[in-house]
Amino acid sequence: MKIPFNRPGLHGRELEYIQDAIKRGKLAGDGHYTSLSNALIVDYTGAQSALLTHSATAALEMAAILLDLGPEDEVIMPSYTFVSTANAVVLRGATPVFVDIRRDTLNIDPEKIEAAVTSKTKAIFVVHYAGVICDMKAIQAIADRHDLIVVEDAAQALLSEQDGKKAGSFGAMAAFSFHETKNIISGEGGALSISDPRFIERAEIIREKGTNRKQFFRGAVDKYTWVDLGSSYLPSELTASFLFAQLEIAKDLTKNRLAAWDRYHTILATYEADGVIERPTVLPQGQTHNAHMYQILLSTPELRENFIAGMKAQGVITPFHYVPLHSAPAGKRFGRSEGDMSVTDDISARLVRLPMFAGVDAEQDEIIEITCSVLDTL
């Protein structure tokens, strides 16, 4: 393929920091670059604490443990999300309850949440799709009425904002991803940010295999031992050093992505006006996304397949996105749906994503030319 959907690359001091990490003689987790990365994530999110993990999946699993989820509990979430959002709940024996999304933002619909609340509901897992923050004011109001905890699956949303607050600071906890397909990358990687101080100390224990090792190194205890549930959620210092190099230029990388997003949006306006596609909704004042992706909706599933095939024939990869979890075999086995899922089903059948990665602007002329030529044939 001439142009992939994603192309990970070096954009800062990644190699320099990896070499420095090796020279420092500590490659296991929680070293120099882990500490620096944690601090930047706190700065970028406004959370009280942040802990690097080896993936956003790990961060979500930690959140599920921190919530003490069990077989009698339910967690409300969108069906239109990656499997990790639900797996974290299912691994604790709890039940994911899927609800529909909004047509404008493709985020969980607050109006559908309240109808899904039962005596078993313990939390709401929201997903900031494409870096667009959910309607957190409405969601938090529902959570407060029913004494529920909100967890943000902010895997795609680093540096997005809403009403002066940053993704990762709305819920009690938030999971971020630094997978190679995200805006800021380390190959594999993630973080759990924590805004509710009740969870900070226990999160450190869970992340350290259930031991109070971090307290020991701070001098708070004279020895460390097994004190709680936990697992090995730390990334290595090699991963952290690569990540820190990207985190320190995260605002510049985001600015470049936003410029590419705006260019796609401007060029494709004509096709939306002609009814060929639907473009992403432009956010109102006070909200900003991070240009994690640029997605379009074709008018029918058949036209989407024709578009994907036409782009591939000219060397450009444009994948669709999630198969809704409520319709997946494991979703039917482990979860349940509440209410109509028509928006989720419709969007998932028509959505396609254009290439978006750091440096995509160098190839965007060609991408746009091919995109327009394929759309002209539909």
Rank of each mutant, 00 (worst) to 15 (best):
K26D: 11
N38F: 06
K23Q: 15
Q48H: 11
L10M: 08
E61S: 14
L10A: 13
L51W: 03
Y44A: 06
D20I: 09
L36E: 14
G9Q: 13
H11G: 10
L36A: 10
G9K: 12
R24A: 13
K26A: 09
L52F: 01
A59Y: 07
A59F: 00
V42I: 13
I41F: 04
T57P: 04
H32M: 10
G46T: 05
Q48T: 08
L36R: 07
M62C: 11
M62T: 15
D30L: 13
L10F: 13
I41R: 03
L40H: 14
Y33G: 12
Y44E: 03
E14M: 03
A58S: 15
R7P: 00
G46F: 02
R24S: 14
P8S: 06
L51A: 07
D43A: 07
R24C: 11
D43K: 12
H32T: 03
E61M: 14
L10Y: 15
L52Y: 13
L51E: 03
V42K: 03
T34W: 15
Q19K: 12
I22T: 01
E14A: 10
K26T: 11
L40Y: 08
A58E: 03
H32W: 14
A28Y: 11
H54G: 14
S35I: 09
N38G: 01
H11P: 06
G29N: 07
F5W: 06
Q19R: 13
G46E: 05
A56R: 09
A21D: 01
P8T: 02
P8E: 00
R7C: 02
G25N: 13
D43P: 12
A58W: 03
T53G: 06
L27G: 08
A56Q: 05
S37G: 03
N38I: 07
G29Y: 07
A28C: 09
Y33P: 08
A21P: 11
S35Y: 13
K23S: 15
S49F: 06
A28T: 15
R7I: 05
A59E: 09
G25I: 04
E61D: 15
Y44C: 04
I18R: 02
P8M: 08
R24P: 08
Q48R: 15
G31W: 04
